[in-house]
Design a protein around this nucleic acid. Structure first.
Lengths: 333, 333
DNA sequence: GTGAAAGCGCTAACAA
DNA sequence: TTGTTAGCGCTTTCAC
């Protein structure tokens, strides 16, 4: 910057003014001269120095708590990130990605915030509601603005972006009941994600309010296709009267389909399966997966927008944004 | 930090010394007192200020050129990122993610580097070899260390991480020829990724050296399942004598399988299909996809390690790291 | 062993 | 309209 000033024969301040658009009371000629020097020297302001002064980083973070080292293998996370990237790149904001192991998450958030690595964060928590509350309190106490995905927080520095998981689960149950299913089970992940909790709630409510007599939630310890397959095989052997399974996500649904094949149960005639997520794979399975679509990309994009607006105006446009979910009927139910 | 110093009754300097391990000539007692204050105050050094002084950011970047806004939907990118995240989080390094549109990439790299947002970058380029060379020159000229994925660069500030794509393609061709196939085609993406180029080269070499008479490379403009499906349908209608297709990636292979089904050609008996990547979906397709596995996670991890070592020692441990690929035989060939 | 002073690159407040 | 000064939080050099 000093170079630019020297080259244009002006002070550092004037250069700074041009860069920040404070150009109202400056001679057009000077402005152009400075602009030219900037271009000649290929100058770019140092975000670090600028940030130190302005107390901002031009960076947004995506934080999650996931026991899996490869937390990016969760397609929902990737969708959120894609949405964020898209919004942020238009504003010259960078995206910092960080996943925490459940055990380290405690001090982890606080540490990162104190390091001043970002101006705001989109956060996707997991764990028991109590644990999550603790984390939310911790985030609040940092003063750093954040947007929760699929979770709620009462705070002026927080907002949340949710999908209508309960509605989605209810729609899925309704479809299955309309097809005459009496024993509809729910295959859940052991790790508690807030969205999964809501899907379970939606499922149970739907069964109850429709006068259904039978409901059952099973857990899968390994959240993989293999894990789901072996679990579902055991379930079906145990209780062959189960005719429909609503799965907490599409990956589990893939495992469920495999289990059905393994046991010689035709999908959907002998066993109906519905997933959650509408991942890329869903429509290419055999049979194509009936699933509740989640607008992950849109959610990530909106979360980033909310954060950006907070940084500009000091408050959130909306404390809460709810996205609809949509049951996509294909061949598995 | 000022707080910590005051609380411990020492100078800022001493606190800084403790934080940076320059503790050799300091009374143990003082050291412990400072450490305690740090803990009491929950102090974390401000990476921004520290970085400004030290000219480093404790952040690494992943940069790619991908026309798709959702460049993260490429499973290979996600794998690279996963590997990087894993390595970086152990070193308290952050990960910055940025995708460029081919048209903006030109100045984009330079801009980011000049902004001093990161200490090094893992870069996955695409485009024609000439274009890529330009970008590599630009990266070199910034002086910022970088590791190329699937591409080469001669520079002291650069290293590269490659997979044996040629070998993988050759193995795939060998398998198909051993099964008696005479007309093996290659389904490529229109967008030129260096890895795809190498797969094509490997394919053509293998056909030639084995005395094969027929070879053909088709391009797919839309890199989606749909795009591949319609392209392959046209291809097969045009020349039904084609009995095997080697696809540039697994997504295209999914489309090819669908096309085969559409035309009533059984896979693998009437049409053999091999993919590249071994994505999560591959083994859950019907039939399970025979594919050349790429160690994306390992490559990303190694790339980050190389960069980290460069930052410490001022030079790369190795100018080039090559990973093997592995043909995984399943049901589609 | 510890403290004081300078400066990384930038911007806000004030002075000219 | 433009230039000067101070300071963001940290580390480094040098003096004590």
């Amino acid at each position: 910057m000093r170079e630019v000033a020297k080259r244009s024969g002006v002070s550092l301040q004037s250069v700074s003014n041009v860069l920040n658009g404070r150009t109202s009371q400056m001679r057009e000629e000077t402005r152009l001269r400075i602009l030219q020097s900037i271009r000649d020297l290929n100058y770019q302001p140092n975000v670090q120095a600028r940030g130190l002064r302005l107390q901002c980083t031009k960076t947004m973070a995506f934080l999650t708590i996931d026991p899996a080292v490869r937390f990016l293998s969760d397609p929902f996370h990737v969708a959120i990130l894609s949405g964020m990237v898209d919004t942020l790149r238009q504003q010259d904001y960078g995206l910092l990605v960080q996943g925490f192991h459940p055990d380290q998450a405690g001090g982890g958030f606080r540490r990162l915030v104190h390091q001043r690595r970002f101006d705001g964060a989109v956060v996707h928590l997991s764990g028991s509601p109590d644990r999550r509350s603790e984390h939310i309190e911790e985030l609040k106490s940092t003063g750093c603005p954040f947007v929760l995905i699929e979770d709620r927080a009462e705070a002026s520095t927080a907002a949340c972006v949710l999908a209508d998981n309960r509605g989605g689960a209810a729609a899925a149950v309704a479809l299955l009941q309309a097809e005459g299913h009496q024993q509809i089970g729910f295959l859940a992940t052991d790790r508690l994600w807030p969205a999964v909790e809501k899907r379970i709630t939606g499922y149970e409510e739907a069964i109850r309010t429709s006068g259904g007599r039978w409901s059952q939630v099973w857990g899968v310890d390994r959240e993989t296709v293999e894990g789901a397959r072996s679990r579902v095989e055991a379930i079906l052997r145990d209780d062959p009267a189960v005719t429909a399974i609503l799965c907490a996500n599409d990956v589990l649904a893939v495992g469920a389909i495999q289990a059905a094949k393994q046991l010689g149960r035709k999908v959907p005639t002998s066993l109906s399966i519905i997933g959650f997520g509408d991942n890329d794979i869903a429509q290419h399975l055999d049979p194509p997966l009936t699933t509740v679509a989640l607008p992950g990309v849109e959610m990530g994009g909106r979360a980033a927008e909310l954060l950006l607006a907070y940084i500009q105006n000091g408050k959130f446009d909306a404390p809460e944004v709810v996205f609809p979910t949509k049951l996509i009927r294909r061949g598995s139910a």
